[in-house]
C-alpha cells in the first residue's frame, strides 16, 4: 500500500466519521443532509484513491455516478424539506416521528437531552425582530459567555 493511498483512505475515514457524527446529532434537516453529502464525498475520495492505485479509471467513473446520485438526492430531498417545512413551519427532524411506538417514553428530544451528559439550562429567547437580518448580539453572547443568556431569560 502506497503512502498516498493510505493517506487518502485515512482522510476518507475521518471525513466519513465526521459526516456520521453530524448526521446523528444535528437536528436541522438541511445540515443532516449536508452531513450525508459529506459521507458521499468520503466514499468518492476512497474510490478515486483506489482507482489510482489500480491504475485504471473505474474509480473515477464511479465517482461520477456518486455525483449523479447525490444530485438526484439533493433535488428530491430539498423539495421534500420544503414540503415538510410548509406543513409544520420547522426544519426539526424530531418533529417527524409518527412512525415510532406511540407509547414509548422519552421520544421528545427535549426530554432526551435532559438525560444526556449535558445539563440543560433555560435557553435564551430571541427577539422576534432582528435588525436588518443581522445576528442579534444576544446569541453570540450566549454561546460565548454564560451571563448573557441569564440576563435575558
Amino acid at each position: 500500500m502506497t503512502p498516498q493511498l493510505y493517506n487518502s483512505l485515512l482522510i476518507g475515514a475521518v471525513l466519513f466519521v465526521l459526516g456520521t457524527l453530524g448526521f446523528l446529532t444535528r437536528r436541522n434537516l438541511i445540515v443532516m443532509f449536508l452531513s450525508a453529502e459529506l459521507m458521499l464525498q468520503a466514499v468518492a475520495l476512497n474510490l478515486i484513491a483506489f482507482g489510482r492505485a489500480h491504475g485504471n479509471y473505474h474509480g473515477q467513473s464511479f465517482t461520477i455516478f456518486v455525483l449523479t446520485v447525490a444530485a438526484c438526492e439533493a433535488a428530491i430531498a430539498l423539495v421534500l424539506f420544503l414540503a415538510l417545512y410548509q406543513r409544520f413551519n420547522s426544519l426539526d427532524v424530531s418533529v417527524w416521528h409518527e412512525l415510532g411506538e406511540s407509547d414509548v417514553e422519552d421520544v421528545e428530544p427535549e426530554l432526551l437531552a435532559e438525560k444526556e451528559f449535558f445539563q440543560v439550562e433555560e435557553f435564551p429567547t430571541y427577539p422576534t425582530l432582528s435588525p436588518a437580518g443581522r445576528e442579534p448580539a444576544l446569541s453570540k453572547s450566549s454561546a460565548g459567555t454564560k451571563k448573557g443568556g441569564a440576563k435575558r431569560g
Binding site: L24, R26, R27, N28, S90, D92, V93, A113
Partner: peptide, 14 residues
Amino acid sequence: TGKSTYDVRLMQPM
C-alpha cells in the same frame, strides 16, 4: 431568521 432551538440542541451527542 436566526437560530432555532433545534439548531443548537443536539440529538443524543454522547
